Simulated assay, not measured.
Amino acid sequence: MSDRTIVVIGGTSGIGLEIARDVVARGDRVVLSGRDLARAQEVASSLGERATGVAIDLSRPEGIRAGLATVGTVNGLVLVAIERDANTVRDYDIARATQLVVLKLVGYTEVIHTLIDRLEPSGETGIVLFGGRAKDIPYPGSTTVSTINGGVEGMTTTLALELAPIRVNALHPGIIGDSPFWAGKPAAVLDGHRSRTPGHQLATMVDVVDATQFLLRNRGISGTSIYVDRGVRVT
């Protein structure tokens, strides 16, 4: 068994849960977070004794320090928590937009600020920030999401410089066909998205987990954004 501890912020469901599950399967320890402590602890318990659950709400960054108080030395950090927002500039909801901006840009940064003295100061330590392909493939209603995910790319480069030798990278998923959000979509919708990829296939949660582990472990990668989208950008 490993003494490595990986923190997964947003690890109680979806892709975050699959990442947490994979961390444990590799023999590492995982600390996973959700908004609700009971839920986070329940999910952690289902993963076994090498998993711990804590509660933080990224949209309320003033409480992040208290929520992470029990976390010890950290060897890897994955910030995967997201919220979805359909918000156009013509019909702009300031409250929804503000919440999402705070969650990702302020919340992600405050988590790193809180854990900075507990992150092992080594090139072996990786931080992975989750953005998304909406940053450069917008869609109707993606005004806030596209802007924020572009901001995640900016965070990646500045934090890679500021936190070195700790490595910081970003992962930008495209449409993940078997994720909880997409799996229930009508077949015609998914087929339309498949047709836009070179191989007519959608990326999977396993693809995202594998890419996350690559960025956590590969000492040669820092300040980089990678895309898990089955090559949609080339069509």
Results as ranks from 00 to 15, higher is better:
Ser225Tyr: 03
Val80Ala: 10
Thr144Asn: 14
Ala69Phe: 02
Leu68Ala: 09
Ile112Asn: 07
Ser225Arg: 09
Ala170Asp: 06
His113Met: 09
Thr98Glu: 13
Leu216Ser: 03
Thr212Arg: 09
Leu159His: 06
Arg230Met: 08
Ser222Leu: 15
Gly14Ile: 14
Leu77Asn: 13
Asp57Tyr: 04
Gly150Met: 09
Arg219Ile: 14
Gln99Phe: 06
Gly199Gln: 13
Lys104Pro: 02
Thr158Met: 15
Glu120Ile: 08
Gly151Met: 02
Arg35Leu: 01
Val71Ser: 01
Glu83Thr: 15
Asp191Pro: 04
Ile6Ser: 05
Ala187Cys: 07
Val209Ala: 03
Asn149Ser: 01
Thr70Gly: 14
Arg217Cys: 11
Leu77Thr: 12
Thr73Glu: 15
Arg219Lys: 15
Ala97Gly: 15
Ser225Val: 14
Arg133Cys: 06
Val23Phe: 05
Arg35Ser: 05
Glu83Pro: 07
Ala40Tyr: 01
Tyr227Gln: 02
Gln213Leu: 14
Gly67Glu: 04
Thr52Leu: 11
Ala86Asn: 15
Leu115Gln: 03
Asn169His: 03
Gly76Ile: 12
Pro138Met: 04
Leu216Val: 02
Val106His: 10
Val189Asp: 02
Asn169Met: 04
Ile19Gln: 05
Val74Asp: 09
Arg167Ser: 06
Gly154Met: 12
Ser59Phe: 01
Pro198Cys: 03
Ala20Gly: 01
Ser195Gly: 13
Ile137Asp: 05
Gly199Lys: 07
Thr212Trp: 09
Ile137Pro: 04
Ala134Trp: 07
Ile112Pro: 02
Asp207Lys: 11
Leu68Gln: 03
His200Gly: 14
Val71Gly: 07
Ser59Cys: 04
Pro61Phe: 12
Thr157Ser: 11
Glu42Tyr: 08
Ala81Pro: 00
Gly63Trp: 03
Thr212Tyr: 13
Asp210Tyr: 03
Val209Gln: 02
Leu47Pro: 01
Pro186Glu: 03
Ile166Arg: 05
Thr197Leu: 06
Leu79Pro: 00
Tyr108Val: 06
Asn218Arg: 00
Val43Pro: 01
Met205Ser: 12
Thr144Gln: 00
Val128Met: 09
Gly63Glu: 15
Thr235His: 10
Asp229Thr: 06
Val54Ser: 06
Arg35Asp: 08
Ala66Phe: 07
Val31Ala: 05
His113Leu: 12
Arg65Ala: 15
Ile175Lys: 10
Ala170Val: 01
Arg35Gln: 11
Gly16Ala: 04
Ala20Thr: 01
Val228Trp: 00
Arg230Lys: 08
Asp207Gln: 13
Leu37Tyr: 01
Leu103Asp: 10
Ile226Phe: 11
Pro180Trp: 06
Asn75Ala: 13
Met155Trp: 09
Thr157Pro: 00
Val31Leu: 09
Ile56Asp: 11
Pro180Gly: 04
Ala211Asp: 08
Gly174Arg: 04
His193Arg: 11
Gly16Met: 08
Arg4His: 08
Val209Lys: 06
Gly150His: 00
